[in-house]
Amino acid sequence: FHVTIHVGDITFHIHGVSEEEVKKLEELVRRGADWREIKKTIEEIEK
């Protein structure tokens, strides 16, 4: 999957994300995680 996440003024683009990881990111966004937490999760996914 290709994912784009907008957190305030920050936009993250992630490529090659599995469905499971998409759900993890959706959950973070849904519970209102700040951009640092989302960035950390994205960095883990990209490894």
Rank of each mutant, 00 (worst) to 15 (best):
F1M: 12
F1W: 04
F1Q: 15
H2R: 04
H2M: 09
H2P: 12
V3L: 07
V3P: 01
V3D: 02
V3C: 06
T4V: 11
T4A: 04
I5F: 02
I5L: 08
H6T: 15
H6K: 14
H6P: 02
H6W: 05
V7Q: 04
V7K: 03
V7A: 06
V7C: 07
G8L: 04
G8S: 03
G8F: 02
G8Y: 02
D9S: 07
D9W: 07
D9A: 06
D9M: 06
D9N: 13
D9H: 08
D9V: 04
D9E: 11
D9Y: 09
D9K: 08
D9C: 09
I10D: 11
I10C: 10
I10G: 04
T11E: 07
T11F: 10
T11S: 07
F12C: 05
F12H: 03
F12S: 01
F12I: 13
H13S: 03
H13Q: 05
I14E: 00
H15M: 08
H15W: 11
G16N: 15
G16E: 06
G16I: 14
S18L: 06
E19V: 12
E20F: 08
E20W: 08
E20R: 08
E20C: 06
E20K: 08
E20H: 12
E21M: 14
E21P: 01
E21A: 14
V22A: 13
V22C: 08
V22Y: 14
V22D: 01
V22H: 05
K23L: 10
K23R: 11
K23E: 09
K23Y: 13
K24M: 15
K24Q: 14
K24I: 15
K24W: 10
K24A: 11
K24G: 05
L25Y: 01
L25I: 11
L25Q: 00
L25V: 05
E26Q: 10
E26Y: 11
E26M: 15
E26W: 06
E26D: 13
E26K: 09
E27L: 07
E27F: 05
E27I: 08
E27D: 13
L28P: 00
L28Y: 02
L28T: 04
V29R: 04
V29P: 00
V29F: 09
V29L: 13
V29C: 07
V29S: 04
V29E: 04
R30M: 12
R30L: 10
R30V: 10
R30N: 14
R31M: 10
R31E: 09
R31P: 02
G32Y: 03
G32T: 04
G32I: 03
G32C: 08
A33E: 06
A33W: 00
A33L: 03
A33I: 05
A33K: 03
D34K: 04
D34Y: 01
D34A: 03
D34S: 08
D34W: 01
W35Q: 10
R36T: 14
R36L: 15
R36V: 15
R36E: 15
R36S: 15
R36K: 13
R36N: 14
R36Y: 13
E37T: 08
E37S: 03
E37R: 00
I38K: 00
K39T: 12
K39M: 15
K39S: 13
K39L: 15
K39Y: 13
K40I: 10
K40A: 13
K40Q: 11
K40N: 11
K40F: 07
K40E: 15
K40V: 12
K40G: 09
T41C: 07
T41S: 09
T41K: 08
I42F: 05
I42R: 01
E43D: 13
E43N: 09
E43T: 09
E43V: 10
E43R: 07
E44W: 07
E44A: 11
E44L: 11
I45M: 10
I45Q: 04
E46R: 10
E46M: 12
E46C: 13
K47R: 13
K47W: 05
K47Y: 08
K47A: 13
K47G: 11
K47Q: 12
K47M: 13
